[in-house]
Every structure is written in structure tokens, then in C-alpha cells.
Design a protein around this nucleic acid. Structure first.
Length: 189
DNA sequence: GTCACCTTAGAAG
DNA sequence: CTTCTAAGGTGAC
């Protein structure tokens, strides 16, 4: 997985029933979120700069609440400001589209590509999703391959499946997308 | 420069 | 249905 943004200033743990996520903050906002690491017991160090502490604490409350809601298959509610400046313009455009997808909804990589005006850049959209520094809150898991096939997921396919199941997307994806032969890839192949 | 990647539409077998 | 191809952005080597 991609390490957090270099401009990251503050790192705090997000404890959930699914493990301890790690949130990274820069002066501008949330700039990274790591999935729970099963291997390392390393704790998020709390290098909170004096004077900005309450600011990070306030953002972190929003982050924690939002992550828990998404894990429960609900809308995230109020999000903290996000610092996505570590991405290229192309990537930021992709992430912006993803952020607009509601719980239980999905788009295909191709649809996202069209939405940002680069209809042929489907693979690039996949790359951008993989480069997403804030999974879960920027719902890269709601982007499926054409025909509602699962596609891939850099942070571990199990997370993608788990999140989608809780949102009710599986085992009955998008009715509009059904009828195509690939739809049952997760179960049939 | 080359390659691998969370893709996809189209054409061929 | 399976297999092959080409096309796009980006980071690693």
C-alpha cells in the first residue's frame, strides 16, 4: 500500500469492530487512511503539534464517525476536510467523482472515465482508484468492472467485497446492470 | 524507453 | 463462452 503523504503532520488511530485504521492529517485536512494491518501491532504515534491539537481532534472525530458509518453500510455523514493534493489532477478528478457515489450505488471504471471527460482512460481510472490515499471515505470500492463484475482492489479484495455486501450491493448488484454474462463473476467463476 | 496495473469494447475462434 | 488486441495515466526500474 502507498505510504502516507509526506506533508502528513498528524497520525491517529481509528478503532472499529473491523480493526484499527490509521488516519493521517496534514495542515489542510485528512490526507490518508490505512486499512487495519493484521501483521504489525505498531501504534499510530500521536505527533500532534501544539496549538493545532483541537483542530486535528475535531477532524478526527468526524473521520472516526464517518468510517464507522461506512463500515455499517450507511452514508458517512459529515466528512472532515480532505487534503488530496498528493494526487495528480487526473487522479483528483477521479476521486471527486468517487466521492459523489452514494452508499449502495456503483459505477463502472468506464463510467467514471466518461464522467471526467476521458472515456478511453478506463485503465487509468483503475490506477487512480488504486492510488486513492483515503479508501472507505473516498469510496473506491464502489467502482466495479463493466457488467458489475468485481474487478480488483489494491488494498485487498476482501475489503471491497465486505464493504459492498454491507451496502447491499451483493449478491444483487445493480438491477440495471444485470443481464450481462459477467455479473455473477464473484459467485459463478 | 519499457513494463505492470483495481479496464473495456470489439473482433475472431 | 474464451482469447486476443489496442488504448490511457502514472510510477517503478
Amino acid at each position: 500500500m502507498k505510504p502516507a503523504n509526506a506533508s502528513c503532520t498528524c497520525t491517529l488511530p481509528v478503532r472499529t469492530d473491523d480493526g484499527e485504521f490509521v488516519a493521517h492529517y496534514s495542515a489542510k485536512g485528512l490526507c490518508g487512511l490505512d486499512f487495519p494491518s493484521t501483521t504489525s501491532g505498531r501504534r499510530a504515534r500521536q505527533a500532534v503539534p501544539a496549538g493545532a491539537k483541537s483542530q486535528f481532534a475535531a477532524w478526527h472525530r468526524l473521520t472516526t464517525a464517518a468510517v464507522k458509518r461506512v463500515l455499517a453500510g450507511q452514508e458517512p455523514g459529515v466528512l472532515p476536510p480532505m487534503d488530496l493534493s498528493c494526487g495528480t489532477e487526473f487522479q483528483q478528478r477521479v476521486w471527486q467523482v468517487l466521492a459523489g457515489i452514494k452508499a449502495g450505488q456503483t459505477l463502472s471504471y468506464g463510467e467514471v472515465a466518461k464522467a471526467i471527460g476521458r472515456p478511453k482512460a478506463t485503465r487509468a481510472v483503475g490506477s487512480a482508484c488504486g492510488a486513492n490515499p483515503v479508501p472507505v471515505l473516498v469510496p473506491c470500492h464502489r467502482v466495479l468492472a463493466a457488467g458489475a463484475r468485481l474487478g480488483g482492489f489494491g488494498g485487498g479484495l476482501e475489503w471491497k467485497t465486505r464493504l459492498l455486501e454491507r451496502e447491499g450491493v451483493f449478491p444483487n448488484p445493480n438491477p440495471a446492470e444485470r443481464g450481462k454474462q459477467g455479473m455473477l463473476s464473484v459467485f459463478a467463476q
